[in-house]
Design a protein around this nucleic acid. Structure first.
Lengths: 223, 223
DNA sequence: TAGTGCGATAATGGATCCAAAATGGCGAGA
DNA sequence: TCTCGCCATTTTGGATCCATTATCGCACTA
């Protein structure tokens, strides 16, 4: 019997810290991540940092170029649009796959998250809770690849949601709340069709809002 | 001016070799991959092997467990079914995104591949050419994430296609040929709707064929 | 004889050191 | 003064060595 710590692997710990920093916007797109800087900032060798960067690359959070290090990718308007179209196709599938395995504890946690959102939060708080809400609705999907794919799409587009919300999006937050309620309701009724419909509408609306704000992206003429 | 070799990075070389071995079936699902074995088989240290395994994990070819190494995942019937449903949703998007950027050289290469398939090949040859055909039709899709996602789905399911073809699937090869021709035709007419329709039908038929052969999978009662 | 617990062995995770490639600055020449 | 090219510095890729953890066999006990 070992009551001691479960001895977390160290490269995962670094990956988790970097993920938080990237998703929270502390590290912005275009920034180059230097292995040595991260290494002695988090008190380890460069080797676990390299492994962590590989994990983050698999999660869609950084981009690796040979001999040129890792940097957070700049996406143009078209790429974000396609990533949202991928979400429109994959997340309904994840939802319907997750739906048969829902538990009452999951609905309690969803309710808790949603209440916290509606109690009024700032932009960072909303983005974090919104992410937790949706990924939780997919969490019972038995196919790990599908869950990972969905999470990767959320990661890749996180910065642009943040930029949009910071510019003037938060006034539409009440729409999001209504849509969240509709999704939970459909899940509780085990109504896959309704769930898919509300979810697709939810994602599509955000996609179109982003497309209507080209100032959030860098110039598309990089060809 | 450097006429010398472009100096390929070494971990990529290892990843490529392992990918070939896995896709060709030399290494079967469930097999544990030992870092040291690969290292001195390919003449390098264990470190590039570790990085290569990370890449393969991102490509969906291996599964990494902390302190327990890398092994090729065993998928059950339900997981493969969901992976095929993901393909049905993502690949039509990849095709329509690729369609506006097609070139005459691409159609020449497609024709070359298809001719080789129709000239009669064995199972391994067919699987390799079929893979090249479809991934080539998506190759002009500008969104790298979408191309990678599609490739990952192909990788994860490759072994089960092989098992199916080896058991008695090849007699339906003429259907595949007809479907390939229909897809190329739709692409040349720039008919996105037709392309999506033929492609979805193509994938769905294979999914149902696999579902009708439960003997290809290990027992699903692993819960 | 079967089951459990301990110990030897082998494999993975991590640290340090070295080599190769890219980045940036400086100077020479037009 | 502007441009091109060379060299120093920085940064990443790779090799070797050490620590930690899992795996497997064997002995001991009930």
């Amino acid at each position: 019997m070992k009551s001691a710590a479960p001895e977390k692997p160290a490269s995962e710990r670094i990956a988790q810290i970097l993920e938080t920093e990237i998703l929270s916007g502390v590290i912005e797109p275009g920034t180059r991540i230097r292995q040595e800087e991260v290494a002695d900032r988090l008190g380890s060798s460069r080797l676990p940092v390299r492994e962590a960067l590989r994990m983050l690359a698999a999660s869609g959070l950084v981009q690796l170029e040979t001999n040129r290090g890792a940097r957070i990718p700049h996406l143009d308007k078209c790429e974000v649009d396609v990533l949202y179209r991928m979400r429109e196709r994959l997340e309904p599938l994840a939802l319907s796959e997750s739906m048969p395995h829902t538990t009452v504890e999951m609905f309690d946690e969803l309710e808790e998250i949603q209440s916290e959102i509606e109690s009024g939060v700032n932009v960072s708080g909303f983005l974090e809770l919104d992410r937790r809400f949706h990924l939780l609705t997919y969490s019972k999907c038995p196919t790990e690849d599908l869950r990972n794919s969905v999470a990767r799409l959320w990661n890749s587009t996180a910065h642009y949601r943040r930029a949009f919300m910071n510019e003037g999006g938060p006034h539409r937050q009440w729409i999001v709340n209504a849509e969240h309620r509709l999704i939970v309701d459909a899940m509780q009724r085990f109504d896959g069709k309704d769930g898919e419909r509300y979810l697709v509408g939810h994602i599509r609306r955000t996609r179109k809002e982003l497309a209507a704000h080209p100032e959030l992206f860098i110039e598309d003429s990089q060809k």
